[in-house]
């Protein structure tokens, strides 16, 4: 189950790059604990180049911890994670050069203007001085912040900060863009505009995207492939359509009547509602709330 299958059909045509090429990301039996809490528990994952891969799961599933291990923020033994064939433990600096990272938290420097925020990242990624201005402009244009670029980031709305962070991550032209809950806490319009930006950039560059979310509707719509994560483990993996069709066939119902949430509940079982471990964060209520909000729209 947790063995990465060959890329699904959607991913196959998205991965225009050399099929024999290295995967963009490879995790082998990745485990990480905070004290007694096993946040990530034997994660196996392979993301093909050019794919938009969604790591999906309720709060506390271990998504952020997995992301922080991949981004070299958490110490992980060698041989566990490789990015474009580079080992995250051994080739830290080289791996970081390939990554664009937007953390879960809104995190632009409020004391700097939008442009200065992006410029800083152009500088620390060694974008040559002669290209810097153009690259910063490009990144700001890509996220539609050209007009607001001269204002302090402290005056931005949540959606604008998120787009600014995308610009910061994009200015170094990363090969793997890692977004941790990029739309959390944003209103529906801002959420849509963040996804638009991601789609546009991907269309332009074909960059690989690893995104975590607990919004099932977004994952269904925007990801080529998904891994459903629960309690640090991957419960199911595949293209959203495949996952739904699989369950529909099993239950003998019409695939349209099966939602990703149903798939998730099927694979995660009773643990999903937290009924067996009521004190844990693995609660799916807010996902349901999001879904009903999405339907109301």
């Amino acid at each position: 189950m947790t063995d990465a299958p060959a890329a699904g059909p959607a991913a196959a045509d998205a991965a225009t790059a050399d099929a024999a090429a290295e995967p963009a990301l490879h995790c082998t039996d990745l485990t990480y604990s905070f004290g007694d809490t096993r946040a990530v528990d034997g994660l196996n994952l392979e993301v093909a180049q050019g794919e938009v891969f969604g790591l999906l799961g309720p709060n506390g599933a271990g998504k952020t911890t997995a992301i922080r291990a991949i981004t070299t923020l958490l110490p992980v033994p060698a041989g566990k994670i490789s990015v474009f064939g580079l080992d995250c433990a051994r080739k830290r600096m080289q791996v970081r050069r390939l990554l664009g990272y937007v953390p879960q938290q809104l995190s632009a420097d409020s004391g700097l203007t939008g442009r200065e925020n992006v410029e800083l990242f152009a500088r620390v990624f060694d974008v040559p001085r002669s290209e810097r201005r153009d690259r910063v402009d490009e990144a700001l244009t890509a996220v539609d912040l050209t007009e607001a670029a001269g204002r302090l980031a402290g005056t931005y709305s949540g959606g604008m900060v998120r787009r600014l962070e995308l610009a910061q991550a994009l200015v170094s032209a990363p090969r793997l863009l890692i977004l941790d809950e990029p739309t959390i806490g944003l209103d529906p319009l801002a959420r849509a505009s963040v996804w638009d930006c991601i789609a546009q950039v991907r269309a332009g560059t074909g960059m690989t995207v690893l995104v975590t979310t607990h919004y099932m509707d977004e994952a269904d719509e925007h990801c080529h492939r998904l891994a459903l994560m629960h309690r640090g483990r991957i419960q199911a993996m595949g293209a959203p359509g495949e996952l739904r069709a699989e369950l529909a066939a099993q239950l003998g119902v019409d695939p349209d009547r099966v939602s990703l949430e149903d798939v998730f509940r099927h694979h995660a079982g009773a643990g999903l509602t937290g009924a067996d471990r009521p004190d844990e964060g693995g609660d799916f209520r807010d996902v349901r709330r999001t879904r009903s909000a999405a339907r109301l729209r």
């Binding site: 600096m93 970081r96 953390p103 938290q105 995190s107 420097d109 620390v124 990624f125 060694d126």
Partner: peptide
């Protein structure tokens, strides 16, 4: 706490 440092630590900056 605000995430600014975290992002800088993921850049190729020793």
């Amino acid at each position: 706490d605000s995430g600014v440092l975290t992002k800088l630590l993921v850049t190729p900056t020793p």
